[in-house]
């Protein structure tokens, strides 16, 4: 059985809110190391891989593997009934068909309980190959989100070029074209505004900006984002969590 407690419901609420627009029915695999979710978005252009390590919970017990088949939007709806600073407990018996969520306020004089019906979801799993990425960029999550939002005014696609000079985001459409270039830099005051580039060879890939804007909704989860790219492969975009990550594998647009 699973019993997992978070000191603040907001930790789970904001993660579910960040990924809910892309996903539908998915399985959350729970075991002694934590909760893991891997799911393709409806268009199969983005794969979301979420890991919430057991040490991120104030109490965690999962003696036998439990699979929680649910619709992520239903989970988001139930989580909306929790205050951000409520103590949140997830509980599910082995082979149960429901997930019990309880929300307690810190003075423990109000407790809500919701039972979310679980489903059997036969989901296709993709094997994610270990990839040597030619380029790794660590930058501010908010700056990435803002840069992509600006370019989405010009086009539905962005080209990202990474070389030793820096990283360039460019877009071209009927209106015209635009680009933003960032040099590698270290910001001593607030580190998250640094741009750190590790490069084994230059790389350039193009991506759909609508899907990218869904991905950058995770900017609320982490101050920095790690972009990893290599020619002809999906990009890996990672937002680190206190004890885990939200990782996206994003298929590029390819010259036909």
């Amino acid at each position: 059985m699973l019993e997992a407690k978070l000191d603040a419901a907001s930790q789970l609420k904001k993660i579910v809110e960040a990924i809910r627009d892309m996903l539908g029915e998915c399985n959350i695999e729970c075991n002694e190391t934590g909760l893991a979710l891997q799911s393709l978005d409806k268009s199969h252009i983005v794969l979301v891989s979420l890991l919430l390590g057991s040490d991120g919970f104030s109490e965690y017990r999962c003696d036998r593997g439990v699979t929680l088949g649910l619709n992520i939007n239903s989970l988001a709806t139930v989580l909306r009934c929790a205050n951000n600073d409520d103590i949140l407990t997830l509980r599910s018996e082995d082979r149960a068909n429901e997930l019990i969520l309880t929300f307690e306020d810190s003075k423990a004089d109000r407790i809500s309980e919701f039972n979310l019906r679980l489903m059997d979801i036969d989901q296709e799993y993709l094997a994610i190959p270990e990839t040597e990425y030619a380029a790794t960029v660590v930058m501010s999550a908010a700056v990435l989100q803002r840069t992509l939002r600006d370019l989405s005014a010009l086009s539905e696609a962005v080209t990202i070029e990474i070389d030793k000079e820096g990283i360039r985001f460019s877009a071209e459409g009927d209106l015209g074209k635009g680009s933003t270039h960032f040099k590698p830099c270290v910001d001593m005051e607030n580190a998250e505004n640094s741009i750190n580039i590790t490069l084994s060879e230059p790389v350039s890939l193009s991506f759909n900006l609508q899907y990218f804007s869904n991905i950058t909704k995770a900017s609320s989860l982490s101050s920095t984002v790690t972009l990893q790219m290599t020619a002809g492969m999906p990009a890996q975009i990672e937002y680190k969590l206190p004890s885990g990550h939200v990782r996206y594998y994003f298929a590029p647009k390819i010259e036909d």
Binding site: H44, I45, L47, E124, A127, A251, K253, E255
Partner: peptide, 14 residues
């Protein structure tokens, strides 16, 4: 022109 790939073009099913 470019066309949008899907992850099935790169990742194999388990």
């Amino acid at each position: 022109t470019t066309q949008q790939a899907t992850l099935m073009n790169f990742f194999s099913k388990k």
